[in-house]
Nucleic acid binder design. Sequence first.
DNA 1: CGGAGCTCCTGGGGGC
DNA 2: TGCCCCCAGGAGCTCC
Length: 279
Amino acid sequence: MRRGLEASVTGRTVAHVDVLHPRAVRRHDGSSADFAARLLRRTLGPANRRGKYLWLPLGPGEPEEALVGHLGMSGQLLVQPAAAGDQRHLRVRVSFADAGPELRFVDQRTFGGMAVEPLSGAGVPASVEHIARDPMDPQFDDIAFAAALRRRRTGLKRALLDQSLISGVGNIYADEALWRSRLHFARPTQTMTKAATAGLLAHVRAVLGEALDQGGTSFDALYVNVNGESGYFDRSLDAYGQAGEPCARCGTAIRREPFMNRSSFFCPRCQPPRARAAG
DNA sequence: CGGAGCTCCTGGGGGC
DNA sequence: TGCCCCCAGGAGCTCC
């Protein structure tokens, strides 16, 4: 989605903004009208991403604020011809001075939203500053992550989903990386050695890299790129959503357990609750 | 303070 | 067919 935004809206100047649902801009510090007014006649800069936050600095000139989007559970940022009919859950429409395709924020559940926010000196919006770097970010610090993990007193998957420690790893990719690492979701973080964490990070990066190559994990039309196209990483899932299916390594049935008001999928044989004694 | 549960929404799908 | 319940790629708030 970030790549798609950069290719299709960066460098364009906003001519009109429609907020069709006020809840979609509830994180904006001001009214819907203020949100629209702050975007008018601004030029969108290059697209940035951290975790599930996306932002485009606002020109012209040295950017002091940015258009920030968060997708929540069901948000989409689509680039659509102005003539295309409104999507059912269209929340925000941004039209451009060149009369080319519109940027549309579509969100069924409205857990996501958009805002115009000031940028810090480092060029990061205020609402994104507490979000850790993504493991695909060259500046992600593996050593610091391993140390932070050992300081935590919680379960491994909880830590992977904690965006202040590491971002970009959601429920699906956490389960996939844990399966590849043969680690149980509740493994105490303080038992994670530097080597175990290095191995886990390698698997996290492999999972994210493969998913990006395949356009993401798309169960249905909710999960799409800016052109509305679904990815197909769901065909590569070894754990997530595979309850009852044989583990691709050992044949044991994958198990589903309730976890943080959602689900964890794991192989009870490959990923035992306690660390293996050796090997 | 860090950690964990609850909650904000809408809709699809399965079971009865 | 209809209804009810469960579930869903997230994360902020509030309590302990």
